[in-house]
Amino acid sequence: MSQNKHAVLSEHACHEIDRWVAKYPPERKQSAVLAALREVQHENGGYLTNELMDAVADYLGLPAIAVYEVASFYSMYELKPVGRHNIAVCTNISCMLRGSDEIVAHIEQKLGIRLGESTADGKFYLKKEEECLAACASAPMMQVDHVYYENLTTAEVDRILDSLE
């Protein structure tokens, strides 16, 4: 495999992928695909590119399609450029019963974007979260950069979003 493609992945990403590969039997490196994509997406500001996916395939010795189909199947991978802070508001049944629609409306108004969009300055991405995020007893809730914020009010949302760099 070409030296070139490996250079797409940072030393840290390779180290992280190796750490995950070690959790699985030696001939089962494919098991590390999910973790590898998570890591390279994180280092790339929150989204994947074809170049990165090809590099992951190359690094793990897989056909590119094996990586593409994983990247397009799971909802935590972004295949287009998005804002660097990932906001995911749960709107499933338990949060809906406790006012998540108002939280979404507030964020949309505050940031001037709709669900699924990013702000023009590239700072925020308001993900269209389809799943229940398993914090139903402290609804409404959101994840910002994968950290849970629970029992939200619009004032609390302002405080959290305003504190981000």
């Binding site: 499933n92 049944i93 338990s94 398993a134 914090a135 139903c136 007893a137 402290s138």
Partner: peptide, 11 residues
């Protein structure tokens, strides 16, 4: 993989 809407016990 706790994902059943309404469920937050395993977390």
């Amino acid at each position: 993989d706790e994902s059943e809407p309404g469920t937050c016990k395993d977390r």
